[in-house]
Amino acid sequence: MPQQALVRPATPDDAAAIAAIHITAWQAAYAGIIDPAFLTALDLAKRTQRWQHLLTRDNQSTLVTISGEEITGWVGFGADDEVPADCGALKGLYIAPQHWQHGYGTRLLTAACTRLRQLGWRHAGLVVLQDNHAARAFYERAGFTTNGVAQPHTVGQQILPVLQYRRPLDTSRV
């Protein structure tokens, strides 16, 4: 990862870049998992509008990583009912596909776990599509574990299995 890369809170001005990363990362990561028609139909204008609304309400729970002037990825975090009640949730972590394998995901994950710990959470939790082997390996390398019990999750018209992961937020791992 370039030395000048940094992590900062997202702002409403970042909405279009975050939306574009959200869509392109989904299309690349979920090819062969999620219905191609659903992935093709993802709408940048609608996604940008959604992100503008979210970031106007609360820009303290989304972080972006930047290299030069370019936003390369984002992570959302906070409370979420998809993870156990004692876990602060990682709600999404996506990197622009052209920046995969450059350390941006690790940088964002570390920053989000640090923030969750600062907010008083003792554990971090997340859900991952069972067939998303690359993401599962990434989180497992970062110390997350799963009990292996798949739960149904609706994506478009599909019901796909997700696995719940969790990890303690002790200071030795963040």
Rank of each mutant, 00 (worst) to 15 (best):
M1N: 02
Q3D: 10
Q3A: 12
Q4C: 07
Q4F: 05
R8S: 14
R8V: 01
P9I: 05
A10C: 07
D14W: 06
D14F: 13
I18Y: 06
A20V: 00
I21V: 02
I23L: 09
T24A: 08
T24P: 02
A25W: 00
W26Y: 08
W26C: 07
Q27M: 02
A28R: 11
P36H: 10
F38K: 00
K46F: 07
R47W: 12
Q49Y: 05
Q49E: 14
Q49D: 13
R50E: 05
R50K: 13
W51Q: 06
W51S: 07
W51P: 07
N59G: 15
Q60R: 15
S61E: 15
L63C: 11
V64L: 02
S67F: 04
E69Y: 01
V75L: 04
G76V: 06
F77Q: 10
G78N: 03
D80F: 04
D81R: 15
D81T: 15
E82Q: 15
V83G: 13
A85L: 14
A85N: 04
D86S: 05
C87L: 02
C87E: 11
G88F: 05
K91Y: 02
G92Q: 08
L93N: 04
I95W: 07
H99V: 07
G103C: 09
G103W: 08
G103R: 07
R107M: 15
L108W: 11
L108R: 00
A111Y: 13
C113L: 10
R117F: 05
Q118G: 03
Q118M: 08
Q118K: 04
R122F: 12
R122L: 14
G125R: 01
L126C: 03
L126V: 03
V127T: 15
V127R: 11
V128N: 11
L129P: 06
D131M: 00
N132S: 10
A135P: 07
A135S: 12
A135H: 01
R136L: 13
R136V: 10
R136I: 11
A137D: 06
F138S: 03
Y139L: 10
E140Y: 03
R141Y: 00
T145K: 03
T145H: 06
G148I: 04
V149Q: 13
T154L: 08
V155E: 10
Q157C: 00
Q158P: 09
L160M: 10
P161F: 09
V162F: 12
Y165S: 10
Y165E: 03
R167W: 04
R167L: 03
P168I: 01
L169I: 13
L169S: 13
D170W: 03
S172N: 12
R173L: 15
V174P: 00
